[in-house]
Nucleic acid binder design. Sequence first.
RNA 1: GGGUCCAUAGUCUAUCGGUAGGACAUUGCCCUUACAAGGCAGGGAGCGCGGUUCAACUCCGCGUGGACCCACCA
Length: 777
Amino acid sequence: MEFKPKITENRWNPGLEEKIRKTWNEEKIYVFNKNTKKKVFTIDTPPPYPSGRPWHIGAAAHYSQIDMIARTARMMGFEVFFPIGIDRNGLPVENYTEKKYNISIHETSREKFINLCVTALDDLEAEMIQIMKVMGLSGDFDNYYRTDSKEYRTLTQTTFIKLWDKGLIYEDTRPNNYCIKCGTTIADAEIEYEELPTELIYIKFKMKETGKDIIIATTRPELLCSCQAIIYNPKDERYKDLEGKHAIVPIFSKEVPILAHPYAKQEFGSGIVMICSYGDYSDVRMFRELKLKEIIAITPEGKMGKNAGNYAGLSIKDARNKIIQDLEKAGLIQKKENIMHRTPLCYRSKTPIEIIPMKEYYLKQIDFIPELLKIAKNMKFYPERHRQILIDWINSLTIDWPVSRRRYYGTEIPIWYCKNCKKACLPEPEKYYQPWKDNPPFKTCPHCKSEKGFEGETRTFDTWMDSSISPLFISKYGKDDDFFKKTFPAGIRPQAKDIIRTWLHYTILRCYQLTKKQAFEGAWIMGYGVDEEGKRMSKSKGNVVDPLPILEKYGGDIFRFWNASEAGLGSDFRYSNDKIESSAKFLTKLWNISRFISMFPEEKKAELTETDKWILSELNELIKKCIEGYESFDFFIPATALREFTWNLFASHYLEMAKSRAYGQGFDEEEQKAAWYTLHLVLKTLLKLFAPISPFITDYVWKELYGKESIHLESLSKPEWGFGLEKSTGKITEFNTEIWKTKKDKGLSLKTEIEVKIPKELKQFEKDLINMHNIRI
RNA sequence: GGGUCCAUAGUCUAUCGGUAGGACAUUGCCCUUACAAGGCAGGGAGCGCGGUUCAACUCCGCGUGGACCCACCA
């Protein structure tokens, strides 16, 4: 009998992937069947944000792993709903557009600016979609959604109107984080801190009762006009006699109380702090605690307001310089020190934020903390240890969520204001409104019945208002009840670690407020992609690795196997070209094993030899291990286990032991068929176990050898070969290694006949071992 | 300042109390009929100090170092 491999090429060719992808599309094997009788598993896919080139290799890896979740769930018997979306709202695209066209948002018409944003987004989006397809994502590309579409924004507005009706939205004057450059309030989560040099100024205040000097140290002398109290530490012996006295603020000559408060640190500056509205968040806390009346010092334009007297109209910096000059002239400055100061910055523009009281819309979240904690404790976390990040965040919330933004590229807040009574009028839900340019949808004011007309709201929502309803949008909330019931709550929310406190938190909050339900059964949290030095990749550091050239060179399967075998779930994973190379080698190995096995016919049953039972015992252990990994959506476990088994046991030992038998050299037909049976059985199982990780090569080999239907319609293998012979593995590999070593040491070819005693524990494998090593007994 | 997580060869990772296994890289030998994008072999590791135990990489404490999060000094 002559043996010819069915598979002829001797290496895996990533170029085949495109053709395989086409057949998937034609066969429609991933299409969601909403009339299924299977249990539905919804993936609340994170819509990636096209914020500029290149797309992060870590992000690409993230999406390839989300696809592994989808494929795993399918092979576990679920009907998988795997939507694909693109997040397009918000500041990053505005910044990208400003840079790309060298324009300023404030000097461009709103209409024109929005159109430029759309053009930029379309370009970036096309590349992302392409990358997702190349990686072999089995999501619904035909119906992919955009968060800036009319439909999506309609839902954002509709849910806002619903929450408004529930009384969960309110407008309030409140100290806000405000970025003067971006011209918008920003959420706490958008602030970053940096050590920056600044001057600490020691200013002389006068004590009203005694006329003595009191020295306070400040980095913000321009805020003197809004000083409403000065404090010292109650333990500070130096200032004991200040209790209950009053101080006179220099220049503005006003009287403020002197109070003892533990917040003042004795060792910093002079030990006395002035409390102004608002230099930082401790000022805010102090104003609330001491019930002081706020004085607005700085306007949203970043200039001094009318309360600043002579300094009104000056920029913050100019006002600071001028007031220092004036104080110096009057001899009111004791000294100046250069210090490093941890300064809060806007994370996009890197401008120091100001705390300015403004009117903004808020969504209540503080009232929901107990329910949110309950959900955080009830939800599954993959991996479990990331649960604490969410719990800590919920526990640290102190204010409600400011949801209004003074930007252009976002979902508009659907409100008109009556020109007569100034009250907010909300339109009917289920329609998309652009109040800054649309005609008002009502003639008379529902509050005062006036017909004087309306002023449209010009602000937009925080982008998280859109993002936080993704599970509702994909499940057609409010549009298709039947579909909604089947697909909501979602089975899993895959996402990155750094947006637990935004996306995950806000989604849980909003879905709970609207549906009283937990948005998803579980959250799957992936780590960061870091560069070869272990540093987190970011555009500003310039260490972002572009996934596109890597995918073009190696294809989706190698890329996917690489990132699955690179780090455990939730851990950061390091980009390394060497590792990608070695992943490519593994696929070639798997390919060649398949090629070898493809020489032999597949037997439907056989009388197994002990060697066959041994490898099946090991296969059984492998299946158990893989199932353990797949059930926890931790692909590192099956990826490494498969590599280990395939390369170091199956190929190195079993294949060599069974080779002569498979060729029929020195064995009878029954034994030969047992080898054929086992080789194919192991290969089929390996392909199925490997299919969620590398879907292309597995499907290709499957169809070449085992049938027309795709491997992706198969179920995950179950452990059913518990022969218990895995105990022999150590002895077998040791024995083989010893003979290889002996032959090598003696400079003999592996084919040379050798005389060795086979240990009695290996008696049962004797015949295969004798033929494998050419042993003379 | 508070918290969470982590610490095994140059790098990544396994072993949930009993000879530290594997991968990448590195070195040497070999074209052995699936694979030189391969095979075989070699060198190389438990952060420090205590404690629990017959036995600690594994459990506990302290320290050191790192990652991340929160708060934040006027």
